[in-house]
């Protein structure tokens, strides 16, 4: 079976390491917080201006002055600090954040990513996505392997306006896990019961298969 949203979030959580400062995007990436190994210490950053993001508040304890980048009410922790959006993006652009996990509409075999605009349809804006992919040390994309219409999202070249070029390090999809290397995409893992032929048929981008998986 292909991976579910929760499976992908669980797999993405394995990319977190002890001591990491991490920024999680909206959607499936937000779910990653539910699967962080209890044995490691991770600090979540919210790009509107907070380090040390806590869980949702209990009903009746919501604070309108305390929201995350998805505008959801959240809580603070004993480690929390607050700062301006300029300082926040200084952290991001300056390479101080270890890992960013975010969604995408398209990713290319060179690690280009498109996730902010569909021309002719609504233009919502890039928010902090361009800053995150440009500045964070390691960028992990979590997305469906194909579009709702069944079209590949892992492409030779992105067709939508780009968020960044050559910035993605790892791609986790409903069908498998790909690493972006200087020699192109390498398929590292397959979801249970997904065959190599199936994933090839659903992928436009060229990729090689890791030795471990081929064995």
């Amino acid at each position: 079976m292909a991976w579910t949203r929760e499976d992908m979030a669980r797999r993405a959580a394995q990319e977190l390491e002890d001591g990491f400062y991490v920024n999680l995007g909206i959607g499936i990436p937000t779910l990653v917080a539910n699967y962080i190994d209890e044995g490691i210490d991770v600090t979540l950053q919210s790009e509107n201006g907070m380090l040390g993001m806590g869980p949702f508040p209990f009903e009746g304890e919501e604070d309108p002055d305390l929201i995350n980048a998805g505008k959801q009410t959240i809580t603070e922790l004993r480690r929390t600090s607050y700062f301006s959006s300029a300082d926040s993006f200084g952290m991001i652009r300056g390479g101080h954040i270890d890992l960013s996990i975010l969604g995408a509409m398209e990713v290319s075999e060179k690690g280009d990513i498109a996730n902010w605009m569909i021309p002719g349809k609504m233009v919502k804006g890039m928010g902090g996505a361009m800053d995150l992919v440009a500045g964070v040390k390691r960028v992990v994309v979590v997305m469906d392997h194909t579009s709702k219409a069944g079209e590949p999202k892992l492409l030779k070249q992105c067709s939508l306006p780009l968020t960044g070029t050559g910035v993605v390090d790892l791609i986790i999809t409903t069908m498998g896990v790909f690493e972006v290397t200087p020699d192109g995409l390498v398929l590292k893992e397959l979801a249970p019961d997904v065959t190599l032929d199936e994933i090839k048929a659903s992928t436009e981008a060229a990729f090689t298969v890791s030795d471990k998986l081929a064995a």
Binding site: E47, S85, A86, F89, G127
Partner: peptide, 20 residues
């Protein structure tokens, strides 16, 4: 925006913060 009544300039959030 789609009807052309409103002009829009998108800035990446961090770039906007830093420009200010």
């Amino acid at each position: 925006f789609l009807s052309g009544e409103l002009e829009l300039e998108f800035n990446p959030q961090g770039t906007l913060a830093e420009r200010i």
